[in-house]
Amino acid sequence: MLLFLTYCLILLLYVVIVLIIPGIGFIGLLGKGKTESGNIKISVVIPFRDEANSANKLCRSINQLDYPRDWFEVILVDDASTDDTLALLGDLDKSIDHTVIQLAEQSGKKAALSQAIAEAKYDYILTVDADCELPKDLLRQVQPQADVSLGVALKTTNSWRIIENIQEAESLLLAGITLGSANMEVPMLATGANLAYRKSVFQETIPYHGNMHIPSGDDMFLLKAALDHEVVIHPRIGKPVTTHCEVSWNAYLEQSARWSGKNKAVGLPQASLAAWLVLIANLLLPLSLITHFSSGWIILFIKFVVDFLFLFLGATYYERFKVLLFAPLVFWFYPIHLLRVVIKILQNTGKRNND
Protein backbone atom coordinates (compact mmCIF):
# COMPACT_ATOMS: atom_id res chain seq x y z
CA MET A 1 0.00 0.00 0.00
CA LEU A 2 2.83 2.42 0.88
CA LEU A 3 4.45 1.83 -2.51
CA PHE A 4 1.17 2.47 -4.32
CA LEU A 5 0.65 5.71 -2.37
CA THR A 6 4.16 6.74 -3.40
CA TYR A 7 3.23 6.21 -7.05
CA CYS A 8 0.11 8.32 -6.55
CA LEU A 9 2.11 11.11 -4.87
CA ILE A 10 4.65 11.15 -7.72
CA LEU A 11 1.85 11.31 -10.27
CA LEU A 12 0.11 14.12 -8.39
CA LEU A 13 3.25 16.25 -8.07
CA TYR A 14 4.21 15.65 -11.71
CA VAL A 15 0.77 16.51 -13.05
CA VAL A 16 0.29 19.62 -10.93
CA ILE A 17 3.78 21.16 -11.08
CA VAL A 18 4.95 20.13 -14.55
CA LEU A 19 1.68 20.18 -16.49
CA ILE A 20 -1.33 21.80 -14.79
CA ILE A 21 0.35 25.00 -13.53
CA PRO A 22 2.13 25.69 -16.87
CA GLY A 23 -1.00 24.52 -18.71
CA ILE A 24 -3.18 27.09 -16.95
CA GLY A 25 -0.57 29.74 -17.71
CA PHE A 26 -0.38 28.71 -21.38
CA ILE A 27 -4.16 28.80 -21.80
CA GLY A 28 -4.30 32.19 -20.08
CA LEU A 29 -1.59 33.51 -22.36
CA LEU A 30 -3.40 32.34 -25.49
CA GLY A 31 -6.59 33.93 -24.18
CA LYS A 32 -4.91 37.32 -24.13
CA GLY A 33 -4.26 37.12 -27.86
CA LYS A 34 -1.21 38.24 -29.75
CA THR A 35 0.20 41.65 -28.89
CA GLU A 36 2.51 43.21 -31.43
CA SER A 37 5.06 45.71 -30.22
CA GLY A 38 5.59 49.20 -31.42
CA ASN A 39 8.74 49.84 -33.39
CA ILE A 40 11.73 49.34 -31.10
CA LYS A 41 15.31 49.11 -32.23
CA ILE A 42 16.71 45.61 -31.90
CA SER A 43 20.13 44.03 -32.27
CA VAL A 44 19.77 40.45 -33.50
CA VAL A 45 22.75 38.40 -32.27
CA ILE A 46 23.61 35.09 -33.94
CA PRO A 47 26.65 33.14 -32.71
CA PHE A 48 27.69 30.26 -34.95
CA ARG A 49 30.32 27.64 -35.58
CA ASP A 50 30.31 25.29 -38.57
CA GLU A 51 26.69 25.87 -39.60
CA ALA A 52 27.13 25.68 -43.39
CA ASN A 53 24.16 23.32 -43.72
CA SER A 54 21.83 25.90 -42.17
CA ALA A 55 23.29 29.20 -43.42
CA ASN A 56 21.16 29.52 -46.56
CA LYS A 57 17.88 29.00 -44.71
CA LEU A 58 18.94 31.38 -41.97
CA CYS A 59 19.84 34.12 -44.47
CA ARG A 60 16.60 33.65 -46.38
CA SER A 61 14.52 34.00 -43.23
CA ILE A 62 16.45 37.11 -42.11
CA ASN A 63 15.95 38.70 -45.52
CA GLN A 64 12.19 38.14 -45.20
CA LEU A 65 11.81 39.74 -41.76
CA ASP A 66 8.83 42.09 -41.76
CA TYR A 67 10.42 44.99 -39.91
CA PRO A 68 11.79 48.40 -40.93
CA ARG A 69 15.38 47.93 -42.11
CA ASP A 70 16.59 50.93 -40.12
CA TRP A 71 15.13 49.59 -36.87
CA PHE A 72 17.33 46.50 -36.49
CA GLU A 73 20.83 45.21 -37.04
CA VAL A 74 22.21 41.67 -37.30
CA ILE A 75 25.45 40.74 -35.53
CA LEU A 76 26.97 37.43 -36.62
CA VAL A 77 29.70 35.98 -34.42
CA ASP A 78 31.93 33.35 -36.02
CA ASP A 79 33.33 31.16 -33.25
CA ALA A 80 36.32 29.96 -35.31
CA SER A 81 34.35 28.00 -37.92
CA THR A 82 36.26 25.47 -40.01
CA ASP A 83 33.71 25.24 -42.83
CA ASP A 84 32.37 27.81 -45.33
CA THR A 85 29.52 29.15 -43.17
CA LEU A 86 30.94 32.66 -43.36
CA ALA A 87 30.94 32.66 -47.17
CA LEU A 88 27.34 31.44 -47.29
CA LEU A 89 26.25 34.24 -44.98
CA GLY A 90 27.05 36.58 -47.84
CA ASP A 91 23.51 35.85 -49.05
CA LEU A 92 22.18 38.40 -46.54
CA ASP A 93 20.37 41.27 -48.21
CA LYS A 94 22.72 44.25 -48.55
CA SER A 95 19.96 46.55 -47.24
CA ILE A 96 20.19 44.83 -43.86
CA ASP A 97 22.62 46.39 -41.44
CA HIS A 98 24.84 43.48 -40.47
CA THR A 99 28.22 42.97 -38.89
CA VAL A 100 30.43 39.89 -38.69
CA ILE A 101 32.68 39.36 -35.69
CA GLN A 102 35.33 36.69 -36.18
CA LEU A 103 36.85 35.13 -33.08
CA ALA A 104 40.47 34.05 -33.52
CA GLU A 105 39.95 30.79 -31.64
CA GLN A 106 36.99 28.76 -30.45
CA SER A 107 35.76 30.53 -27.33
CA GLY A 108 32.25 29.16 -26.79
CA LYS A 109 28.77 30.58 -27.14
CA LYS A 110 28.87 32.74 -24.00
CA ALA A 111 32.04 34.49 -25.08
CA ALA A 112 30.58 35.02 -28.56
CA LEU A 113 27.38 36.49 -27.12
CA SER A 114 29.27 38.71 -24.67
CA GLN A 115 31.40 40.26 -27.40
CA ALA A 116 28.43 40.82 -29.71
CA ILE A 117 26.32 42.42 -26.98
CA ALA A 118 29.19 44.72 -26.06
CA GLU A 119 29.27 45.97 -29.66
CA ALA A 120 25.48 46.07 -30.20
CA LYS A 121 24.03 49.45 -31.24
CA TYR A 122 20.63 49.03 -29.64
CA ASP A 123 19.34 48.43 -26.13
CA TYR A 124 17.17 45.44 -27.05
CA ILE A 125 19.02 42.20 -27.82
CA LEU A 126 17.41 39.22 -29.56
CA THR A 127 19.49 36.04 -29.66
CA VAL A 128 18.80 33.26 -32.13
CA ASP A 129 20.76 30.17 -33.15
CA ALA A 130 22.33 29.79 -36.57
CA ASP A 131 20.54 26.50 -37.28
CA CYS A 132 17.13 28.18 -37.04
CA GLU A 133 14.64 29.78 -39.41
CA LEU A 134 12.95 32.97 -38.24
CA PRO A 135 9.26 33.80 -38.77
CA LYS A 136 8.59 37.03 -40.65
CA ASP A 137 6.99 38.73 -37.67
CA LEU A 138 9.62 37.71 -35.10
CA LEU A 139 10.83 41.24 -34.35
CA ARG A 140 7.26 42.53 -34.10
CA GLN A 141 6.61 40.02 -31.30
CA VAL A 142 9.12 41.68 -28.97
CA GLN A 143 7.31 43.77 -26.39
CA PRO A 144 9.09 46.88 -25.09
CA GLN A 145 7.57 46.64 -21.61
CA ALA A 146 9.45 43.38 -20.90
CA ASP A 147 13.04 43.50 -19.68
CA VAL A 148 13.35 39.83 -20.64
CA SER A 149 11.09 38.26 -23.26
CA LEU A 150 10.90 34.45 -23.53
CA GLY A 151 10.10 33.05 -26.96
CA VAL A 152 9.79 29.56 -28.39
CA ALA A 153 12.03 27.53 -30.68
CA LEU A 154 10.40 24.40 -32.07
CA LYS A 155 11.96 21.36 -33.62
CA THR A 156 9.74 20.59 -36.61
CA THR A 157 9.66 17.94 -39.29
CA ASN A 158 7.54 17.00 -42.29
CA SER A 159 8.88 13.47 -42.13
CA TRP A 160 7.00 10.50 -40.68
CA ARG A 161 10.16 9.08 -39.09
CA ILE A 162 9.57 8.14 -35.47
CA ILE A 163 12.75 9.75 -34.12
CA GLU A 164 11.93 13.15 -35.62
CA ASN A 165 8.31 13.22 -34.52
CA ILE A 166 9.28 12.23 -30.98
CA GLN A 167 11.58 15.26 -30.89
CA GLU A 168 8.84 17.51 -32.23
CA ALA A 169 6.44 16.29 -29.55
CA GLU A 170 9.06 16.90 -26.86
CA SER A 171 9.69 20.36 -28.31
CA LEU A 172 5.99 21.25 -28.15
CA LEU A 173 5.77 20.10 -24.53
CA LEU A 174 8.81 22.21 -23.61
CA ALA A 175 7.31 25.22 -25.43
CA GLY A 176 4.14 24.95 -23.35
CA ILE A 177 6.11 24.68 -20.13
CA THR A 178 8.32 27.64 -21.09
CA LEU A 179 5.48 30.02 -21.88
CA GLY A 180 2.97 28.72 -19.34
CA SER A 181 5.31 28.74 -16.36
CA ALA A 182 6.52 32.24 -17.26
CA ASN A 183 2.93 33.47 -17.45
CA MET A 184 2.39 32.01 -13.97
CA GLU A 185 5.46 33.98 -12.82
CA VAL A 186 7.53 30.86 -12.07
CA PRO A 187 9.56 30.56 -15.30
CA MET A 188 11.19 27.14 -15.60
CA LEU A 189 12.83 27.27 -19.03
CA ALA A 190 14.30 29.62 -21.61
CA THR A 191 15.85 29.04 -25.01
CA GLY A 192 18.71 31.07 -26.42
CA ALA A 193 17.34 30.33 -29.89
CA ASN A 194 14.59 32.90 -29.27
CA LEU A 195 15.42 35.07 -26.29
CA ALA A 196 15.10 38.86 -26.07
CA TYR A 197 16.33 41.16 -23.32
CA ARG A 198 17.59 44.66 -22.73
CA LYS A 199 21.31 45.18 -23.11
CA SER A 200 21.21 46.98 -19.77
CA VAL A 201 19.83 43.82 -18.11
CA PHE A 202 22.77 41.80 -19.44
CA GLN A 203 25.25 44.42 -18.24
CA GLU A 204 23.71 44.78 -14.79
CA THR A 205 23.06 41.11 -13.98
CA ILE A 206 26.33 39.74 -15.45
CA PRO A 207 24.72 36.32 -16.12
CA TYR A 208 27.92 34.53 -17.20
CA HIS A 209 30.04 35.51 -14.22
CA GLY A 210 31.66 32.37 -12.83
CA ASN A 211 30.23 30.02 -15.45
CA MET A 212 32.05 30.91 -18.68
CA HIS A 213 33.85 27.54 -18.48
CA ILE A 214 30.53 25.67 -18.73
CA PRO A 215 29.87 25.02 -22.46
CA SER A 216 26.07 25.38 -22.43
CA GLY A 217 23.39 27.13 -20.41
CA ASP A 218 23.73 30.70 -21.67
CA ASP A 219 19.91 30.98 -21.77
CA MET A 220 19.23 29.46 -18.36
CA PHE A 221 22.02 31.38 -16.64
CA LEU A 222 20.53 34.60 -18.00
CA LEU A 223 17.06 33.58 -16.82
CA LYS A 224 18.37 32.82 -13.32
CA ALA A 225 20.30 36.10 -13.16
CA ALA A 226 17.18 38.00 -14.25
CA LEU A 227 15.09 36.30 -11.56
CA ASP A 228 17.73 36.96 -8.91
CA HIS A 229 17.61 40.67 -9.80
CA GLU A 230 13.78 40.74 -9.97
CA VAL A 231 13.78 41.71 -13.64
CA VAL A 232 10.42 41.83 -15.45
CA ILE A 233 10.04 38.63 -17.52
CA HIS A 234 7.29 38.16 -20.09
CA PRO A 235 6.41 35.13 -22.22
CA ARG A 236 6.02 35.87 -25.91
CA ILE A 237 3.48 34.10 -28.14
CA GLY A 238 3.36 34.16 -31.92
CA LYS A 239 4.92 32.09 -34.67
CA PRO A 240 7.97 30.27 -33.31
CA VAL A 241 11.53 30.10 -34.45
CA THR A 242 11.98 26.65 -35.99
CA THR A 243 14.92 24.29 -36.23
CA HIS A 244 15.59 20.78 -37.48
CA CYS A 245 15.31 17.49 -35.62
CA GLU A 246 18.33 15.27 -35.09
CA VAL A 247 18.29 12.40 -37.58
CA SER A 248 20.19 9.81 -35.52
CA TRP A 249 19.47 8.38 -32.09
CA ASN A 250 23.04 9.03 -30.93
CA ALA A 251 22.89 12.71 -31.94
CA TYR A 252 19.54 13.07 -30.17
CA LEU A 253 20.97 11.39 -27.06
CA GLU A 254 24.05 13.64 -27.03
CA GLN A 255 21.91 16.76 -27.41
CA SER A 256 19.48 15.71 -24.65
CA ALA A 257 22.34 14.90 -22.27
CA ARG A 258 23.95 18.27 -22.96
CA TRP A 259 20.70 20.17 -22.37
CA SER A 260 19.78 18.18 -19.26
CA GLY A 261 23.23 18.40 -17.74
CA LYS A 262 23.15 22.20 -17.52
CA ASN A 263 20.22 22.26 -15.02
CA LYS A 264 22.44 21.20 -12.14
CA ALA A 265 25.02 23.89 -12.96
CA VAL A 266 22.41 26.64 -13.27
CA GLY A 267 20.65 25.81 -10.02
CA LEU A 268 17.24 27.34 -10.82
CA PRO A 269 14.97 25.71 -8.19
CA GLN A 270 11.76 25.43 -10.24
CA ALA A 271 13.65 24.11 -13.27
CA SER A 272 15.46 21.51 -11.15
CA LEU A 273 12.22 20.45 -9.46
CA ALA A 274 10.43 20.07 -12.80
CA ALA A 275 13.35 18.10 -14.27
CA TRP A 276 13.45 15.72 -11.32
CA LEU A 277 9.68 15.19 -11.43
CA VAL A 278 9.79 14.44 -15.16
CA LEU A 279 12.60 11.95 -14.59
CA ILE A 280 11.04 10.25 -11.56
CA ALA A 281 7.55 10.10 -13.08
CA ASN A 282 8.79 8.57 -16.32
CA LEU A 283 11.13 6.06 -14.69
CA LEU A 284 9.17 4.99 -11.61
CA LEU A 285 5.54 5.08 -12.72
CA PRO A 286 6.02 2.31 -15.35
CA LEU A 287 7.15 0.10 -12.46
CA SER A 288 3.62 0.28 -11.12
CA LEU A 289 2.65 -2.24 -13.81
CA ILE A 290 5.01 -4.75 -12.22
CA THR A 291 4.21 -4.13 -8.56
CA HIS A 292 0.50 -3.26 -8.88
CA PHE A 293 -0.60 -4.45 -12.30
CA SER A 294 -4.31 -3.63 -12.22
CA SER A 295 -4.03 -0.26 -10.51
CA GLY A 296 -0.78 0.49 -12.35
CA TRP A 297 -2.69 0.73 -15.62
CA ILE A 298 -4.93 3.39 -14.06
CA ILE A 299 -1.90 5.44 -12.97
CA LEU A 300 -0.31 5.24 -16.42
CA PHE A 301 -3.59 5.99 -18.15
CA ILE A 302 -4.04 9.18 -16.10
CA LYS A 303 -0.48 10.24 -16.92
CA PHE A 304 -1.02 9.57 -20.63
CA VAL A 305 -4.26 11.55 -20.74
CA VAL A 306 -2.74 14.59 -19.01
CA ASP A 307 0.41 14.41 -21.16
CA PHE A 308 -1.73 14.16 -24.30
CA LEU A 309 -3.93 17.11 -23.34
CA PHE A 310 -0.86 19.27 -22.72
CA LEU A 311 0.64 18.18 -26.05
CA PHE A 312 -2.71 18.86 -27.73
CA LEU A 313 -2.60 22.47 -26.48
CA GLY A 314 0.75 23.13 -28.10
CA ALA A 315 0.02 21.17 -31.27
CA THR A 316 -3.24 23.05 -31.76
CA TYR A 317 -1.79 26.51 -31.20
CA TYR A 318 1.23 25.91 -33.44
CA GLU A 319 -0.80 23.85 -35.94
CA ARG A 320 1.40 20.75 -35.72
CA PHE A 321 -1.37 18.17 -35.66
CA LYS A 322 0.57 15.28 -37.21
CA VAL A 323 2.64 14.92 -34.07
CA LEU A 324 -0.45 13.92 -32.06
CA LEU A 325 -0.47 10.58 -33.88
CA PHE A 326 2.87 9.80 -32.27
CA ALA A 327 1.70 10.54 -28.70
CA PRO A 328 1.45 6.83 -27.69
CA LEU A 329 4.96 6.17 -29.01
CA VAL A 330 6.31 9.18 -27.15
CA PHE A 331 4.62 8.00 -23.95
CA TRP A 332 6.23 4.54 -24.05
CA PHE A 333 9.57 5.57 -25.53
CA TYR A 334 10.35 8.53 -23.29
CA PRO A 335 11.19 6.54 -20.13
CA ILE A 336 13.76 4.58 -22.15
CA HIS A 337 15.19 7.76 -23.63
CA LEU A 338 15.45 9.45 -20.22
CA LEU A 339 17.19 6.40 -18.78
CA ARG A 340 19.74 6.56 -21.59
CA VAL A 341 20.21 10.29 -20.97
CA VAL A 342 20.90 9.67 -17.27
CA ILE A 343 23.44 6.98 -18.12
CA LYS A 344 25.08 9.29 -20.68
CA ILE A 345 25.33 12.15 -18.17
CA LEU A 346 26.90 9.80 -15.60
CA GLN A 347 29.37 8.56 -18.20
CA ASN A 348 30.31 12.11 -19.17
CA THR A 349 30.73 13.05 -15.51
CA GLY A 350 32.95 10.04 -14.95
CA LYS A 351 35.14 10.96 -17.91
CA ARG A 352 35.54 14.55 -16.67
CA ASN A 353 36.46 13.32 -13.17
CA ASN A 354 39.04 10.92 -14.61
CA ASP A 355 40.54 13.70 -16.71
Rank of each mutant, 00 (worst) to 15 (best):
residue 302 I to P: 04
residue 324 L to F: 09
residue 67 Y to M: 07
residue 89 L to Y: 07
residue 51 E to Y: 09
residue 189 L to S: 03
residue 304 F to D: 11
residue 116 A to S: 08
residue 310 F to G: 06
residue 185 E to H: 15
residue 146 A to D: 14
residue 166 I to N: 02
residue 214 I to Y: 12
residue 238 G to T: 07
residue 29 L to E: 14
residue 55 A to H: 04
residue 311 L to A: 12
residue 20 I to R: 10
residue 297 W to K: 12
residue 195 L to K: 05
residue 263 N to T: 09
residue 15 V to S: 15
residue 353 N to T: 12
residue 308 F to W: 13
residue 137 D to R: 12
residue 189 L to F: 15
residue 28 G to T: 01
residue 210 G to C: 10
residue 46 I to E: 09
residue 126 L to F: 13
residue 29 L to Q: 14
residue 177 I to W: 02
residue 46 I to P: 04
residue 59 C to K: 01
residue 293 F to T: 15
residue 116 A to T: 10
residue 324 L to N: 05
residue 19 L to E: 09
residue 286 P to W: 03
residue 297 W to D: 00
residue 171 S to Y: 02
residue 349 T to S: 14
residue 166 I to K: 02
residue 44 V to H: 03
residue 210 G to L: 07
residue 282 N to L: 00
residue 48 F to V: 04
residue 328 P to T: 11
residue 151 G to L: 06
residue 224 K to M: 05
residue 307 D to W: 01
residue 78 D to E: 09
residue 272 S to G: 01
residue 34 K to Q: 15
residue 92 L to G: 09
residue 179 L to E: 09
residue 242 T to M: 10
residue 205 T to G: 09
residue 65 L to N: 04
residue 261 G to I: 10
residue 346 L to W: 09
residue 341 V to W: 01
residue 6 T to P: 00
residue 103 L to F: 06
residue 302 I to R: 01
